[in-house]
Design a protein around this nucleic acid. Structure first.
Length: 469
RNA sequence: GCGGCCAUCGUCUAUCGGCUAAGACAUCAGUUUGUGGUACUGAGAAGUUGGGUUCGACUCCCAGUGGCCGCCCCA
C-alpha cells in the first residue's frame, strides 16, 4: 500500500519535470499517477455468480432453521468501538492482540472491524434493553467478519458467518438445543458426516482453580515441553494441551483435565448436557482439550468438524456458553449461549461432498427482435411478460435473428418469441417451439396468456411423468 | 507473525536466453443479408509488479504482491 503511494509520488515528481503543455498529454500523465491494482486485497475474495447458488442455499437453510427454532434476525454494524472487543474477547488473545483490524476515525474514535459476530449482538442486546423481552431471547445474524491473519483455503481476512445466540436461559437443555441447531444447519446443507466435539471449561471459580493446577503440572514437566509450550504455559496454559509436538502430547496425556476439576454446579451442568445430547441421538465426542480462543466462554464449549477421512479436517464453526459476558460489558447478569459457523467453510465442504446447491430458476422463454420498430416494441413486451411472472431472456443488442436464436438455444429455453418488422406492424408475435421447431403466429394481445398457458401445460406434463415414473 | 511451494490470454495448458509467445475451451463477428445444432472462416485476448545479470529475458537472480501448504490461530 505504502509502496504504491510512494511509486505514485515518485512518478508525479519525475513527470512534473518533463510535463508537457498540451492537455491531451496531461490527461495521460494523470492516469499514470494513480495506478489501480486490479486485485482484491489480500485474503478478500469476490463471490462470483457461479458460486451464488451455494451462497443462496446457505442463506435459505440458515434463515429457515433460524425461524424454525425461534430466532429473530438482527443485523449489527461491522464496526464497533475497539475496547468492546478488547474487554470481551480478551486482551491476551490472538484475535485481539494481532488479528484485529483497528483504526482511529477522523473524529478520533478508536474502532475496529468485528472479528466475530457475538460481541456486537451482545452489545445490541444490552443497548436496546432486550432483557425485558420474554426469555430466552434468541437472535440470528449473518454477515462478514474480519481478522488480519495469513489467508489459506477456508481462512480469509474477510469471511462470512452465520450466528445464533440465545440470552437468558441457563438450563443445559439450551446448550443441547444450540448444538442440535448447529448440527441441523450443517447436515441440512448436505454435509452429513460431521463430528461434534464438546467440553466444559467451567465457571470463573473452578476454572481458576483448575488453571493453577495445570500450571503447576506443566511447571513440573517444563523440561519436557517444546519452546512454544513453555511460553504458552504462562500466557494460556490450556493451549499447551493442544500442542502437536510428540513430547508435549505425552505431557498433556497425563495432565489434569478440566472436566475432572469442575465445581459441583458446572459438573452437573455438563452431565445434564451430555444426557440431553444422548437423548437427541446426537453423536458427540468429549474433547477435554477443546478450548476456544475467546476469553468469554464459560462451561460448555463445542465445535462442529467436518468428518472427512482423507486427513483434511476443518472446523466449520463452534461456540459455547458465555454466562459472564453480558454483565462484563455492562448489562445485567444474563446467562447466554451461542455459536457461529463459517459460510466459506460450509461451502468448501458442500462442494467436497457434492451437496446440492440451490438451483436458480432459469428462463424458459426467449424474446428475439428484428428491425427498428420491433426492437422498440420488444422492450415493452419484455416488461409485460416479466410483470406477469414469466421469466424471459433476451439479447437486445444483437442484430441478426440467427445469433439471437443461437443464444436462445444455448440457454435451453422452451420457446422463443419472434417479433419482426412484419409482426410489429401486424401486432402479432411468432411463438417458436424450440424442441419441435414448430411456429405459430399469435396476436400480441393474447400473447402473455398464451405463453403462460403453454408453460403451465408443459409443467403439468413434467409432473405427471414424475409421479408415474 | 514464522517456514515451504507456486505465478503465461477469461479458463486450462505449451514453448523458448533472440518472441511476430502456441493450442484448446470460452467470447465476439461471419459463412449473401427473417430461424437454432454440427462444420467452416475470422477477430479480440497473456508473460503479477519493480529492480538486477545479459548484446538481448517471458525464460536466470533478488525484492514486492498475490495464491496454495504447514505452524500459530480459528470461522
Amino acid at each position: 500500500m505504502t509502496k504504491i503511494i510512494k511509486k505514485a509520488l515518485i512518478k508525479k515528481t519525475t513527470v512534473k519535470s518533463v510535463k508537457s503543455k498540451t492537455k491531451k498529454q496531461t490527461k495521460i500523465i494523470k492516469k499514470e499517477l494513480e495506478p489501480i491494482v486490479l486485485q482484491s486485497p489480500r485474503g478478500m475474495k469476490d463471490v462470483l455468480p457461479v458460486d451464488q447458488s451455494y451462497w443462496e442455499q446457505v442463506r435459505r437453510v440458515t434463515e429457515k432453521l433460524a425461524r424454525d427454532y425461534g430466532f429473530s434476525r438482527i443485523d449489527t454494524p461491522a464496526v464497533e468501538f475497539s475496547n468492546l472487543f478488547n474487554r470481551s474477547i480478551g486482551e491476551g488473545t490472538d484475535i485481539v492482540e494481532k488479528e484485529l483490524y483497528s483504526f482511529t476515525t477522523k473524529g478520533g474514535d478508536k474502532v475496529a472491524l468485528r472479528p466475530e459476530m457475538t460481541v456486537g449482538v451482545v452489545r445490541a442486546y444490552i443497548q436496546h434493553g432486550m432483557n425485558v423481552l420474554p426469555k430466552p431471547v434468541k437472535l440470528f445474524s449473518t454477515g462478514t467478519a474480519y481478522r488480519y491473519d495469513r489467508p489459506q483455503t477456508g481462512r480469509y481476512r474477510e469471511f462470512s458467518q452465520v450466528n445464533y445466540e440465545s440470552f437468558g436461559e441457563q438450563d443445559p437443555i439450551l446448550d443441547a438445543q444450540m448444538i442440535q441447531v448447529a448440527a441441523r444447519v450443517v447436515q441440512t446443507l448436505g454435509i452429513k458426516s460431521i463430528q461434534i466435539q464438546v467440553n466444559s471449561i467451567g465457571c470463573p471459580v473452578c476454572r481458576k482453580e483448575y488453571k493453577s493446577l495445570l500450571i503447576n503440572y506443566l511447571e513440573s514437566k517444563s523440561s519436557k515441553l517444546c519452546i512454544d509450550c513453555k511460553r504458552r504455559k504462562d500466557v494460556n496454559p490450556l493451549r499447551a494441551l493442544d500442542c502437536k509436538e510428540d513430547k508435549c502430547s505425552q505431557v498433556s496425556a497425563g495432565a489434569p483435565q478440566s472436566i475432572d476439576h469442575l465445581c459441583e454446579e458446572c459438573r452437573v451442568h455438563f452431565k445434564n448436557l451430555l444426557e440431553y445430547l444422548d437423548e437427541l441421538d446426537l453423536p458427540y465426542i468429549i474433547n477435554p482439550r477443546l478450548v476456544r480462543g475467546l476469553d468469554y466462554y464459560t462451561k460448555t464449549v463445542f465445535e462442529i468438524w467436518s468428518g472427512s477421512e482423507d486427513g483434511r479436517k476443518s472446523s466449520l464453526g463452534g461456540g459455547g456458553r458465555y454466562d459472564e459476558l453480558v454483565k462484563a460489558i455492562g448489562g445485567e447478569a444474563t446467562p447466554a449461549i451461542g455459536f457461529g459457523l463459517g459460510i466459506e467453510r460450509l461451502i468448501i465442504e458442500m462442494k467436497r461432498v457434492q451437496a446440492k446447491p440451490y438451483r436458480v430458476p432459469k428462463p424458459k422463454v426467449f424474446l428475439a427482435q428484428l428491425g427498428d420498430l420491433a426492437k422498440k416494441k420488444s422492450l415493452k413486451l419484455f416488461s409485460e411478460l416479466e410483470k406477469s411472472g414469466v421469466l424471459v431472456a433476451e439479447s437486445f443488442g444483437r442484430g441478426s435473428l440467427k445469433s439471437q436464436l443461437r443464444v436462445a438455444n444455448r440457454l435451453g429455453v422452451e420457446m422463443t418469441l419472434i417479433l419482426g418488422q412484419k409482426e410489429a406492424l401486424d401486432k402479432t408475435v411468432i411463438i417458436k417451439n424450440m424442441v419441435s421447431g414448430e411456429q405459430e403466429t399469435v396476436s400480441m394481445e393474447k400473447l402473455v396468456d398464451l405463453v403462460k398457458k403453454k408453460l403451465k401445460t408443459d409443467n403439468v406434463v413434467v409432473y405427471q411423468d414424475h409421479t408415474n415414473g
